[in-house]
Structure formats: C-alpha cells, structure tokens
C-alpha cells in the first residue's frame, strides 16, 4: 500500500497542476453546456464526481477479470448503469434541476473524463488509490465548473444561486446584464481565458509550438 503522502498527492494533483479539463482536455462538453447557472453546474459536478468515483472503484475491483478485447463495452455498461441510478435519483428529488440539465446527465456516460480515468488509472491500480484519483479528478472538474458557472451567472443575470447579488439597472441599480454570458460563445471564451491564465501561471503546461522551420518540417511529420 502506498504511503499517506502519495494519497494526498493523487488527490490534489488533478486540482490545478493536472486539471482534467484545462490540461488533459477531458470532459469539456459538459463543462461548457451546463454552466449557465451555478445550481446546475454544482449538480452536474456532484453527479459526475459520484459516478466517476464509484465507476473507478468498481472497475478497479474487477480489473483482473476483464478481458482486454471487450473492456471498453464492459466499462461503458458499468458507467451507464451508474448514470441511470443518478438520473433516476435526480428526477425523483431534484426534478427542476433535472429538467434544466436535460440530456446532459445521460451524457455523463460518454463523458471522456470518466472513461479516460477508468482506462488510464483504475485499470492498473487497486481500488483505494483508484477511487482517490477519481475523486481528485472529479474535484478538479468541479472547480472549473463552479468557476465558470459563477462567472456566467453573476455577469449574465446578476444573480448567484438564484439570489440577486448585483443590483440590476432596470430595478434602480447600476448593473446591466451581459446577455452574451448566457449564450454558447461566452463559455468558449471563458474557458479559453482560464486555460491561458493557468498556463501563464504554470508555464510548464504550455504546449510546444506547432510551427517548425521548414527544413525540419519533413522530419517532424
């Protein structure tokens, strides 16, 4: 068994340094689609973290019995079953939010983050570290979702969790909502900006330039 220090590292590394969304390019679809308000972003983040942690644990438990050829289908079936459970719970207890999330809960099944972590980590490690790793990645994903959700809701509607935080101009305040924040393009711009900021803070994450001088180009390809 690994030392407690490495547990802590497995848990915290995906938060900023190896963030699944900004560095590994995993799970972007849902990170953008459900972040028009903080409440939906939180629900999505929580659902994904639960599914990811449980799926990693389960797959890691049976990792020695999965034949290589059918492992993708097996993993997807396990994930899909967990997602169905979450979907039913949301529909039963949080009906309004489940309406707002529409098909995106179901799409956790094909969220590359879940399959990516089970495929790269849980398949080769014992259950406990796998679940810790999955939980850490879930938290890293949640951080990004919460950040984007906050920005879009505050600047798009002047609200946070449905409560007014910036006084609106039409009600005698000073704030005019930026309706662009609620549309699709702003999600791209915010995430692009976030990636830029993170990579400026941590230059080792920056990608190598695509461009190579012409004489080396043939060799590189």
């Amino acid at each position: 068994m690994a030392a407690p220090g490495s547990f802590w590292r497995t848990l915290t590394a995906p938060l900023l340094r190896e963030n699944p969304v900004t560095l590994q390019i995993l799970g972007i679809c849902s990170a953008l689609a459900v972040t028009t308000s903080l409440a939906t972003a939180l629900t999505m983040a929580a659902s994904l973290t639960v599914v990811l942690t449980l799926a990693a644990g389960l797959i890691s438990l049976i990792r020695r019995h999965i034949p290589d050829t059918i492992r993708l289908i097996l993993q997807i079936v396990i994930i899909a079953s967990l997602v169905i459970v979450i979907d039913q719970i949301l529909q039963a207890y949080f009906f309004e939010i489940s309406r707002a999330l529409s098909v995106f809960v179901g799409l956790i099944t094909t969220n590359c983050l879940v399959l990516g972590r089970t495929e790269t980590f849980a398949r080769h490690n014992p259950p406990v570290p796998s679940m810790v790793d999955a939980f850490g990645n879930g938290l890293g994903y949640s951080l990004v979702l919460i950040f984007i959700g906050c920005v879009r809701e505050v600047f798009g509607k002047g609200e946070l969790m449905g409560r007014q935080v910036l006084p609106l101009a039409e009600q005698g305040g000073w704030f005019t909502p930026l309706s662009l924040m609620l549309l699709a393009p702003s999600g791209f711009f915010l995430l692009g900006g976030l990636v830029w900021a993170l990579r400026t803070l941590m230059p080792e994450q920056a990608e190598a330039p695509d461009f190579a001088p012409p004489e080396h180009r043939e060799a590189a390809e």
Partner: peptide
C-alpha cells in the same frame, strides 16, 4: 503568447 498556444487559442 506561450500560454495561449494550442488549447487556449482553439477555445477562443
């Protein structure tokens, strides 16, 4: 800019 290369600029 270095930080924008690759993923960042693609998002924008």
């Amino acid at each position: 800019p270095d930080g924008l290369r690759g993923l960042g600029i693609t998002f924008i």
